[in-house]
Design a protein around this nucleic acid. Structure first.
Lengths: 340, 340
DNA sequence: GATTCAAATGTAAGCGCTTACACTGAGGTC
DNA sequence: GACCTCAGTGTAAGCGCTTACATTTGAATC
């Protein structure tokens, strides 16, 4: 028997159970292929030694890890939290483990994280959005690691997606806003560079304006990273500007609540002085006062569907495709008609 | 040269560069031990083949992964987000990668995740709180994986900790509440079983009450999981109960904003009809209206210090210890004196 | 030019596991 | 009783990498 101070190996277990390493391995991986008496003996040895398989070795020999990686742009706010939680739950019930890392919205870091996860043997990857260096997709293909882009729906892309139509959703919201009489509209958008969702949402607003025959030149757009404080700052600029908007449409709820806070700090009222809308319908939207008008995204459903789809790809039951989910409007008190 | 369709290995690189595998390995790990000409040739081959080292193999051969694991109770809300972000940033600058997973506050799942991370070769682990099965600590010790408990400060524990004194902080807040004349106080606490922080905070409230000579029997306590909706439900129970409290102290900000929402829904006012306090000072606290009185926790600093301390342990520069950070009160409008 | 020695590189032994294949022997068949 | 099956188990060959040790190389020294 080997030195008990160091981590026990398969070999140690085999020795103390009086069987071969193959048998121990089988006990752990396909117990039904081993007769009960032996199995019990082996399991006792495992217990007694406190044995845990070495993952690296296992990966190397078996090429499967039952690990899925996810790289999200941020953990700082709850945008991805709910969807990710559902994703993890579904993976867990199917016997997979989720490892998450965050890119802080930086393509460079995202690439590192992707490589880190692949190197660590992730069987599949969940990515957010699909706007990234094609070389990365080639790399993944080369490594044989399937990936799925969530939070977007794009039937024309080669890359499998699961999500909703950001552009159409935002267009629908915009139509509601214009139908309430708003003509002076401003936008606080996320940074559009390298972010297809932010771009699609902005385009959606333009679509909506066109439908209402509002000239696009009247639209003020501020781009800023998705953080509450940034929403507040942008809002201040807008409200102190020459031509104050009657409605501020925000790229997501986080920016919107920042904007709402600022309106309050300026001694003004939402929605009496200005209407505000968000996007995502995270919990925050119902917490603020007044409650926020926003686009509801089926986060949990998306997470669950993503898990199922990705596992299908990993287990070669499908090769991906595009899954569309429906978003819907949540009209709440932060949006009000212009009095005539 | 091997089949170009499959993932290239060290061997392939060595062959196309016309050197041995040892040289390639050295190029990758300690470039200065290889002469420039060779190095360039090797790097070209790496580039050309799109080679990425196989992590499992690397771990097995080198026993180091430069990976740190963190298991947090939840990703659903932002309690841990800020601290974790800082933790990751610090790790990143020191050349480590962070892998996160969530236990959904379930000890069983937490244990699985710990094992999963250790098996995947994590060099060290960040845990939240230190209330868990001693067998787990023994397991980690056995595997030689150092771990650090954050969000708590406990100089008496064997387990290294980095955090603040939950109990004293909550006691200080309670003293403020009682000094404002509140006598009928209710508590919406997190689930205390298996959660040392929730327990310490509750004890802190009791300490504060004792100091103000308020009998502990007058204290109503509801325990519920940390979710906004649960805060709302608990609040409803309290406000509709026989002996309505004048102040509701919540175990964290998440519960507090849920309670605030409910007060508003009941057509009542914070702080005129009831004062509400939280704990953590996450962004939410400043977003709600009125802003929430709470205990400020130095999340970013904690994350950063945790990273430094854990790496020191991993690299055997220290064996841990207890690091104390200071929390502080943030008095905002959700708490108001009882009119006399 | 012979000798010395450090720097550069190569050789090959594992790291801990899975699994194809080989072996063994008990039960069934004729 | 000879022969066949096949479930249960063992043997041993890798998986892709790092690294101790061995070897080669070439500049410096005499």
């Amino acid at each position: 028997m080997s030195d008990m101070r160091s981590v026990p190996t398969l070999d140690d277990v085999a020795r103390t159970a009086g069987v071969s390493t193959a048998t121990v391995s089988r006990c752990l991986n396909s117990p039904d292929r081993v007769v009960e008496g032996t199995r019990i003996r082996v399991m006792n040895a495992v217990e007694q030694l406190g044995y845990t398989p070495n993952f690296g070795a296992r990966v190397m020999a078996a090429k499967r890890t039952f690990t899925i990686g996810a790289i999200i742009p941020t953990m700082e706010n709850a945008i991805f939290a709910r969807g990710l939680q559902a994703f993890q739950e579904e993976l867990h019930t199917r016997g997979y483990t989720l490892l998450v890392s965050s890119s802080a919205y930086q393509p460079k870091i995202e690439e590192e994280q992707i490589r880190a996860l692949v190197a660590r043997g992730a069987d599949g990857l969940l990515l957010i959005g699909h706007d990234r260096d094609p070389a990365l997709y080639r790399y993944l293909q080369r490594q044989g690691v399937p990936s799925l882009s969530a939070w977007v729906y794009d039937p024309d892309s080669d890359q499998p997606t699961v999500g909703f139509d950001n552009r159409a959703s935002m267009c629908a919201l915009t139509e509601t806003v214009t139908s309430l009489g708003h003509r002076k509209i401003a936008v606080i958008s996320g940074i559009t560079e390298g972010n297809d969702r932010a771009r699609a949402r902005l385009e959606g607003i333009r679509d909506g304006l066109r439908k209402a025959a509002i000239p696009l030149e009247t639209l003020t757009v501020i781009e800023t990273p998705y953080e509450i404080e940034n929403g507040a700052v942008a809002c201040e600029t807008l409200m102190k500007g020459a031509d104050r908007p009657t409605a501020i449409m925000c790229g997501n709820d986080v920016l919107a609540v920042g904007a709402m806070r600022k309106v309050r700090e300026l001694g003004l009222s939402v929605p009496d002085d200005v209407s505000i809308t968000g996007f995502d319908d995270i919990e925050l939207a119902r917490i603020v006062n007044p409650p926020l008008t926003t686009v509801h995204v089926p986060h949990r459903d998306m997470g669950k569907r993503a898990a199922a789809a990705l596992i299908d790809m990993v287990e070669k039951r499908s090769s991906g495709g595009a899954i569309e989910l429906q978003s819907s409007l949540r009209l709440r008190e932060s949006l009000k008609a212009i009095p005539r």
